[in-house]
Design a protein around this nucleic acid. Structure first.
Lengths: 347, 347
DNA sequence: TTGAAAGCGATACCAG
DNA sequence: CTGGTATCGCTTTCAA
């Protein structure tokens, strides 16, 4: 009777090394050696240990193991994203996961929703969990919260926006060059009135894209006309309204540069509702699934979120492997994908 | 000199409770009480401890804490998805993250790529990490791998596909009813030749949708014609080819039911290339961003991944809170969203 | 209200 | 090659 109960209990609670050692008739240290594939255990003992492991369905307890380990590593990293469900973020996530897997490391991902206090809270939680390092898409107003990790001397890599600590690595997109390219591209098709529709100007990426727009106009020898600039567009609806406003002006633009996906979509909505989608050129920043299903197919400046994520993760693991060089700031180029909407010539 | 070096060392290595205790001049247990907000510490001592905590920038070590804790909980759960970057998966992920946050629990997410051996390996890793529970979108051929978690007596909740253990909870979509609805919907617009374009027939969801298609035909009093059925479509290109094939037949379909996003897109590509997008009806399974930007706007059977994720997480935490009821099998309904393409009448 | 001692599950170090 | 003992950072138990 008691035996039965005990058996049940053993099944319920994961077996420990101690129990394996007892069953195999060896010391716990020998079990540890076998489990960790350390050399210097006689085949016979190893065999006995392995049998006990199978019998008890022993699972190595990584948590306890890490506690005692010399390097104090937990083989986990933290990933602070804007929103794990957003396509850009999740593409980053996937690329990072793949690199982490090669390093036998697990990833804690979380969504800050671009809220600095949430970001701070999550950073604290991750610090408590002693993650080995952090990859962060910082919020627009990241504060000292991330210092909690930094003080733990864990490396941090910033992605998509510049590092908020001077000594941290960063991986960003060349937003400015991308936007500049878009403008020059449309100018080459004869456009002289190219509108800018952008996100919140306080967002670093949005600001950079605006600078690229200005730069592009200058390169193409065009005048900057503030009446063609609409910033702080935060939704499809807002972008649609802004576009409709532009189209209703006396001198409407003949081309649009849209600084972000939702804005591109809103602008296209507006063009379609006015039947102008084949007459006004559009280049959007950031690619989206189905961009080549619309009519006309949408030309975009594509980012490479997977590259961004991979590079960021590689930087982080390099630090974990002892890289002590000064901060790396890597800029990943964009790519113009002409599909039709950006190649509509000026009237 | 030595002092300076020591200071640096203390900054490098996170402070321990012992160090806090020493600085505050109290026992380590008192520090523990303060940190864990346990009652019965005099305000004066608590104050001293808190000062020391601030001074040393102490971070509670959750890992070590959990090791000794009575309930043996790690306040982490594992999430095995097909691919964290896929919109359906990432929507699930986000919903689960939100529930987990309410329970002060962190989420380890990973991508199985529908590969059973990867899934098994990840399950093992998570078992070693002693996650409190698991939420899994099982691969098409999930094997015993997940038993590793089960043997640890950690609860498992299956999502999107039925449970592979009889005693585990599951949350699935009512694929069959959704598909059935789509067929009846188009039949109501006079269609009698409705084609089925589906994913790999071995996928549970694809099979269910096919059954719903058959059921829908029967309900509408239509004959099942195998020449209108194309299964095992695994890419946009394959779906496009299959659709072109259908359109080239002597008696082409007047309506299409597409069993999955990529297939819907491929079919639309094909229709557009033949200029038939306004003459042949389409209802797709699963909603996608921009479905209402296409011309015509695409009618869909929408799933509710966020609901799925939330419910799954709630089930899991209920188990963790002691729910010992027999397995719950929750089926989440779908929703028909008519946007235009599904309401094109039969010629 | 406070603290000393034991222990969680595993590794490190050093002796046999 | 093998094992005893101290220890990782914290919680538990129990005595003061």
């Amino acid at each position: 009777m008691t035996t039965l109960a005990d058996t049940n209990d053993m099944a319920r609670r994961p077996a420990t090394m101690k129990e394996v050692a007892a069953l195999a008739g060896v010391s716990i240290k020998t079990v540890s050696r076998v489990i960790n594939q350390e050399p210097g255990v006689s085949p016979e003992l190893a065999e006995r240990v392995n049998n006990a492991v199978r019998l008890l369905d022993y699972r190595h307890n990584t948590t306890a193991s890490n506690l005692r380990r010399a390097d104090q590593r937990t083989a986990t990293i933290g990933l602070l994203l804007d929103d794990v469900a957003n396509p850009f973020s999740s593409a980053l996530h996937r690329a990072i996961e793949d690199v982490a897997r090669q390093h036998d490391t697990l990833v804690f991902a979380g969504s800050s929703d671009d809220d600095a206090s949430r970001e701070e809270k999550m950073a604290l939680t991750l610090a408590s969990r002693r993650v080995d390092g952090l990859i962060v898409v910082p919020t627009s107003q990241s504060r000292s919260g991330l210092l909690h990790i930094k003080r733990l001397e864990r490396p941090i890599v910033f992605v998509d926006r510049p590092a908020i600590f001077h000594d941290a690595d960063s991986v960003t997109v060349d937003n400015r060059a991308g936007a500049c390219t878009a403008i020059c591209h449309m100018a080459a098709y004869g456009h002289r009135r190219i509108a800018f529709l952008g996100d919140l100007g306080t967002l670093w990426t949005a600001a950079e894209r605006y600078l690229g727009y200005v730069e592009g106009l200058a390169t193409a020898g065009l005048q900057l006309d503030q009446r063609l600039v609409h910033q702080n567009l935060r939704s499809i609806a807002a972008a649609e309204q802004a576009t409709l406003g532009l189209l209703a002006e006396q001198q409407p633009p003949t081309a649009l540069f849209t600084g972000q996906n939702l804005i591109t979509i809103g602008a296209i909505h507006a063009l379609q509702s006015r039947g102008l989608q084949h007459r006004i050129a559009v280049v959007g920043f950031d690619d989206f699934l189905l961009a080549d299903l619309l009519d006309p197919r949408v030309s975009v400046i594509a980012q490479q979120p997977a590259t961004l994520g991979r590079v960021a993760a590689e930087l982080l693991f390099a630090r974990l492997d002892g890289d002590r060089a000064s901060a790396h700031h890597i800029v990943v180029p964009t790519q113009l994908i002409p599909r039709g909407s950006g190649e509509i010539p000026a009237p």
